[in-house]
């Protein structure tokens, strides 16, 4: 068969285009990283990396930039959110895909899609009027002084926000496991739960890890809703009812008023860099775990 030169050219052009698009996507994280690193350079002229990460003193006006309270705040809120949402997502994904009748599963899936589409500021407002007073009351019952704006409130609101994302992935994972695997395990005399625990979860493990990792990355960077309920006090939180100040909230709150001062701008760029690096490291670790889990 003779291919006309016109078709051959078109073939080549498409190949080059797809290649260029791929390279562009690959370069994005590097571009982000380099941009942020260059902008934070000013900060490094006067401070060491150790000081920046481990000092708790945050006094931008006198040139002291300790990011520890923000890092700790971010980690606490995110971990709390994951602790709440991961078990809920895992159990409900199992129920929806393994036990629920088709009709119920469809309704739930629709509800989750709606949840995923709600803007984050709406979760924030709902958190302020619903979750914050509730957390304040619980603190009262426990004999702790708190107005409710706290790590716990942030964790709760954040956990609800990441549920649709994690759950959607998990349901997809469980749905793609061939039904025959369940049949095999049942026919060997396993109960439904033993089958889920020993066979399906084992098979789903790489996907479960990926879903949790995706949830973590989203939660770690979530800004608006958390900022509205977490209290924003620069202090290392000592308990669930203490207020905190996560990194994204710091950037969002400070950029408008203080961003014009070069050193503070540089500090905020560094905060963004920390966010980026944490998410990158977390994803890389997870990728490694997923590859290990994918052997079976």
């Amino acid at each position: 068969m003779n291919i006309s030169s016109h078709r051959r050219t078109r073939d080549r052009v498409v190949t080059v285009l797809t290649y260029a698009a791929m390279v562009f996507v690959l370069l994005l994280p590097f571009a982000l990283f380099v941009g942020l690193a260059v902008k934070s350079d000013l900060l490094f002229r006067e401070h060491s990396l150790g000081d920046l990460l481990f000092s708790s003193v945050w006094r931008p006006s006198s040139g002291e930039f300790g990011f520890k309270p923000f890092i700790v705040g971010s980690v606490y809120v995110t971990l709390l959110a994951m602790l709440i949402s991961c078990p809920i997502c895992l159990l409900s994904a199992i129920h929806i895909t393994q036990y629920a009748p088709t009709r119920v599963a469809k309704v739930v899936t629709t509800a989750i899609d709606i949840l995923a589409g709600i803007p984050s500021v709406v979760y924030g407002v709902w958190g302020m009027v619903g979750v914050v007073p509730f957390v304040g009351k619980i603190a009262g019952w426990c004999g702790i002084q708190s107005n409710g704006y706290s790590i716990l409130a942030g964790g709760i609101v954040l956990s609800i926000m990441v549920v649709p994302f994690i759950l959607n992935i998990l349901m997809e994972i469980y749905r793609t496991i061939p039904r025959e695997l369940t049949e095999v395990s049942l026919s060997l005399g396993a109960t439904r739960w033993e089958t889920i625990r020993d066979v399906l979860n084992r098979k789903a493990l790489p996907g479960i890890l990926a879903a949790f990792g995706f949830g973590f990355a989203r939660a770690f960077g979530e800004t608006m809703a958390v900022l509205m309920v977490v209290g924003n006090v620069v202090k290392i939180p000592e308990g669930l009812f203490d207020p905190g100040y996560p990194l994204p909230a710091l950037i969002a709150n400070s950029f408008g008023e203080l961003g014009s001062i070069p050193e503070i701008e540089s500090a905020l760029m560094f905060a963004a860099l920390i966010l980026l690096v944490v998410v990158l490291i977390f994803n890389a670790t997870l990728r490694w775990l997923i590859i290990k889990a994918e052997r079976y």
Binding site: E180, L181, E183, V184, S187, R202, K203
Partner: peptide, 10 residues
């Protein structure tokens, strides 16, 4: 039970 295609457990 033996199915159409082999389904080894993971």
């Amino acid at each position: 039970l033996l199915s159409q295609r082999p389904f080894p457990l993971p």
